[in-house]
Design a protein around this nucleic acid. Structure first.
Lengths: 215, 215
DNA sequence: ACTCGATGTTACCCGGCAGTAGCAGCCGCC
DNA sequence: GGCGGCTGCTACTGCCGGGTAACATCGAGT
């Protein structure tokens, strides 16, 4: 998108501005190539700068990656928590959480091209520091949802967590799929369909005995 | 688990037996380290053999990985398709698909330790050959479900596909989470809970107007 | 028991890339 | 107006790991 390259090759920049620019360049390269296929040279060139400059701002490749990861982890986490806190109507909560995931994935507003892939599709899950951060996002969002589910259904904590994983996981997977499929239907419609699906599924728990065979 | 190493260092084996053994060793290493952190030396040592033997059976690291990927891709795909074909009762279909995912992930019967991670958590998604195979599994399972959903709900193809992604995605994510959380509840109970959630969600589509606010 | 080919081994090559040493130019400050 | 330090660059090192060349060993057939 933004060809930051050769616009200002050789120009001096204050530290904080340079840092932001490097992070932006790194994000583009990491997102489009993944961690392993991304060379530090690529990132430097992308930022219109040479490699040692990168090392003046970040001690190593992993640290650079983690800095990005942390930023976006806080972003999703905040969105989901706000989605739940904004109301006490559970149906609206379902709606808001779905919207949160779709907005996060669809970085239409921000220039943020595909930052969500760093978290949802990292190719560095075996690095402990990365795994810890990725797991943390999943765990905390799930628990935020599970708090409500457990409180309002009377299910055990384990049961509530399983259902919450189903709800947040579906939101994440569908949002990603919707984007990769080039937005086959409008965002609002996608959210509305999923909201109906999930609300019908979760709203009357734990009433048992919905036996109704046939197709 | 099975320390195939040094049991028979130096022993000659017929080609097909050796090949199976190499695939088994490769799977263990790829699963526990991921593609990038797995060295061909590791795999060879794991199989109690030296590196060139590996190259007598597979032209390169990627081919070895793809061979494993193909095997397990067919496995899940077959399980889900059978789950749908075994009945025409849609509620049982939901049950069967969930069971298919949980059984696939929980390789209790086979020695198959964590093979599902190769497909659901590959760290080589940027390699086109890998991406193609992983996408194919997701796409075909989704479409198999979407065929039924579209037929029985009257939704548009795009809408049916979105909901199908939600259903299969939730099955995949919850099964993986359940295993990683060390099976917090029995498999049958997890399936039953999710079956209820999903069946309530999907069964009466596309009836609109389930307005019922409040918590 | 000698040969021949399949099976294995040791020991190497070499390319890619993270990280670094040492040099060059720009700017403010006395 | 030249000196110091900050910003940046070119050019290198070192290592890890995929892939290979050349040599060794076993066993079947005659």
């Amino acid at each position: 998108m933004t060809d930051t390259v050769d616009a200002s090759r050789g120009a001096r920049l204050p530290r904080s501005a340079r840092r932001k620019q490097l992070l932006a360049a790194a994000q583009e390269v990491f997102v489009s190539n993944g961690y392993h296929a991304a060379a530090m040279d690529d990132i430097a060139v992308r930022a219109g700068v040479s490699k040692p400059v990168l090392y003046q701002h970040f001690p190593g490749k992993l640290d650079l990656y983690l800095a990005l990861l942390d930023t976006h982890a806080e972003d999703v986490l905040g969105r989901v928590r706000r989605a739940l806190a904004e109301t006490d109507d559970n149906r609206i909560r379902v709606h808001n959480v779905l919207t949160a995931y779709f907005d996060f994935v669809d970085g239409e507003d921000r220039g943020d091209s595909g930052a969500f892939r760093l978290i949802f599709e990292s190719d560095l899950g075996n690095e402990p520091a990365v795994r810890e951060r990725v797991d943390r996002v999943g765990r905390l969002t799930m628990q935020a949802v599970a708090d409500t589910v457990a409180a309002d259904t009377g299910l055990s904590r384990e049961q509530a967590e399983l259902l919450s994983v189903a709800l947040t996981g579906a939101a994440q997977i569908t949002a990603t799929w919707w984007l990769d499929a080039n937005r086959p239907i409008p965002k609002a419609e996608a959210v509305r369909l999923l909201e109906t699906l999930q609300w019908r599924g979760i709203s009357h728990f734990p009433l048992q005995g919905t036996e109704r065979p046939g197709g």
